[in-house]
């Protein structure tokens, strides 16, 4: 059974009488342990597809099965629970909560999973250690460097042991050195068995993937598997 199985997914926005087809029937499956890079120009529908995979959005038609479970027709709270337990997000601008320090930001998914305070602390510390920020636990996001912020976001994404980590332009705002660090971290996590899906339009980033899916105008125009070049 594939980890992710989407068949004939569409997403249509209606503005008045106009129908705007963002996704025009996407079908693909992603296996456990894959490192997938989704590429495409802006407006190609890749971010919308990512939101659907991340259970932040639901398709207009088509089916999406995550670990064999049909996601279509689930309510808000059921989707929240799936995001909490199975999916880790790394957003483009990392979306850390400014009023909370690194450790508290990482604890957040555990908080909504009902983990006790002591366990939360312990697991969050372990996650921060894994991304190499052991000594930055009590720093607030604005006290962290541009290269450290995505690490906190990654620690938050993996703290609840998700099946997938979804990253949306994770290197969009980073310099080359930090980008390489972060991508190396993703590769390391992938080697540890976590499925990683990254949306990007940077060809450099795509080199890390073992599978590259290209989007254009709401459709998949290429789906290549290859051994990673880096």
């Amino acid at each position: 059974m594939a980890l992710i199985e989407v068949s004939n997914i569409t997403k249509v926005y209606r503005v008045g009488d106009l129908e705007h087809w963002v996704l025009k029937g996407i079908s693909l499956s992603i296996e456990r342990g894959e490192f997938v890079v989704i590429m495409g120009p802006s407006g190609s529908g890749k971010s919308t597809f990512m939101n659907i995979l991340g259970c932040l959005d639901t398709p207009t038609s088509g089916t999406y099965r995550l670990e064999g479970m049909n996601i279509g027709g689930l309510g808000r709270d059921e989707l929240s629970e799936i995001r909490n337990k199975k999916i880790g997000f790394v957003f483009q601008n990392f979306n850390l909560i400014p009023r909370m320090n690194a450790l508290e930001n990482v604890e957040l998914p555990l908080l909504y999973n009902g983990v006790t305070k002591r366990n939360r602390r312990e697991r969050a510390k372990r996650a921060l250690e894994l991304v190499g920020l052991k000594d930055r636990e009590s720093h607030y996001p604005n006290q962290l460097s541009g290269g450290q912020q995505p690490r906190v976001a990654i620690a938050r994404a993996l703290v609840n042991n998700p099946a997938i980590i979804l990253a949306d332009e994770p290197t969009g705002n980073l310099d080359t050195a930090s980008s390489e660090d972060i991508m190396a971290l993703f590769s390391r996590l992938n080697a540890g068995g976590i499925t990683i899906i990254i949306v990007t339009h940077e060809p450099d980033v795509a080199l890390y993937g073992r599978r590259v899916i290209r989007f254009r105008d709401g459709m998949v125009i290429a789906d290549e598997r290859r051994s990673p070049s880096i």
Partner: peptide, 16 residues
């Protein structure tokens, strides 16, 4: 609003 969005993304439910 953004903080609420983040909390929802990482699993906060309606009543949370």
């Amino acid at each position: 609003t953004k903080e609420i969005g983040i909390r929802m993304a990482v699993g906060a439910k309606t009543w949370d």
